[in-house]
Amino acid sequence: MSSVIACELPPPLPADGSGPDLGQYQDAGTIRRLLTSARTVAVVGLSPKELRASYFVGFYLQRNGYRVVPVNPREKEILGEQCYPSVAAIEEPVDIVNVFRAPAAVPGIVEECAGRAKAIWLQYGVIHPEAAERARELGIEVVMDRCMKVEHARHLGRLHWLGFTTRRITARRPEAP
């Protein structure tokens, strides 16, 4: 179904704190390291429609220097790049597989990532702790329930230009863009 689960609000966790511990998949240091080291990002469920969140993210990543590889079996080309029907069909090394799919699709994507990708990044609301555990067993790093565009803008970009909280506290001089 939804290739457009995107930057929607995550579903509320149980009030008694019994929900999955997502914090282990949201470590700011890991996120920052992945964002700075990655070059190629496969976007699974990338929509060709400009107003979809997946397109916003793909467009943004491409503008910010990443090579974006669209994964969408219904399209031939998105963002000027050839589409692949699945992660398994991608013919080049991938650093991060960024997922805009319903949680049920995640276990299959994880298996396809084995030996092909260094990390899998699940967007807001794409929550599947068991699949994340399996990915780690396969030596794949996991980010879950986070938006790649927002995190890039927070750590390396311009989220602060719109008055959003980056939580970046430092007296060190950043490199000029």
């Binding site: 700011a28 240091g29 920052r32 430092t170």
Partner: peptide, 17 residues
């Protein structure tokens, strides 16, 4: 990006800071 900033990422800084 300065790598030296890493570590500040996860610290819970106090209100006055």
């Amino acid at each position: 990006m300065s790598e030296r900033e890493v570590g500040a990422e996860t610290r819970e800084f106090g209100f006055a800071t």
